[in-house]
Amino acid sequence: MTKVRKKIDRTFKERAVELSKDRKNISKLVRELGVSAAQLYKWHKESEEFGIGSFPRNGNVKKTPEQERISILEKKLKDSEVEIEILKKAIGIFSKSDQ
C-alpha cells in the first residue's frame, strides 16, 4: 500500500509558521494542524532562511536575496556580452563594405 502525499499550499505553511511563533505548546499545535513536528520545524527554518522566497511552487528554486541579485546581474552580463558580439560583427560588416 502506498502512502499518498498531502499537498500543502504556501499560505497554510506561512500561517503555521506564524502560529508556531505565537504558541508555547508546539506539540498541541502540530496535532491541530495535522502535520509532523519535524515538518513544522523545517518550514520554520526555511522561512527564517529565505524569508519572502520561502515555499516556492512548481519546482522553482529557493534563493536568498543575494542569490537573486547575482542571478539578475549574471543575466545582464550575458545580455551585454551578446550585444558586444553583435556590434563586433556589425563593425566587421561595415568596414568590409567601405573598402
Rank of each mutant, 00 (worst) to 15 (best):
M1Q: 04
M1Y: 02
M1I: 12
T2C: 10
K3Y: 03
K3W: 03
V4D: 11
K6F: 08
K7I: 06
K7E: 08
K7M: 11
K7D: 08
I8R: 15
R10S: 14
R10P: 05
T11P: 00
K13P: 02
K13Q: 12
E14K: 08
R15I: 11
V17E: 02
V17T: 00
V17R: 00
E18P: 00
S20E: 00
S20G: 03
K21V: 01
K21E: 05
K21F: 02
N25I: 01
N25T: 03
N25P: 00
K28Q: 09
V30I: 09
V30S: 01
V30A: 06
R31L: 01
L33E: 07
V35S: 02
S36D: 04
S36P: 02
S36N: 02
S36L: 00
A37W: 03
A38E: 06
A38T: 07
L40C: 06
Y41A: 06
W43V: 02
S47M: 11
E48M: 10
E49Q: 13
E49W: 02
E49A: 14
F50V: 04
G51C: 03
G51T: 01
G53Y: 03
G53V: 00
S54F: 01
P56A: 13
P56R: 09
P56M: 07
R57V: 07
N58I: 04
G59K: 09
N60F: 11
T64Q: 09
P65H: 03
P65I: 07
E66W: 05
Q67T: 10
I70A: 12
I70F: 10
S71W: 04
S71V: 04
I72S: 12
I72N: 10
L73A: 11
E74N: 13
K75D: 15
K76C: 09
K76L: 14
K76I: 10
K76N: 10
L77Q: 12
K78L: 10
K78V: 08
K78Y: 07
D79I: 07
S80A: 13
S80T: 09
S80H: 14
V82F: 14
V82S: 15
V82K: 15
V82N: 15
E83A: 14
I84L: 14
I84C: 10
I86W: 08
L87Q: 08
L87C: 15
K89Y: 08
A90N: 10
I91A: 12
I91H: 09
G92Q: 15
F94V: 13
S95W: 04
Q99A: 14
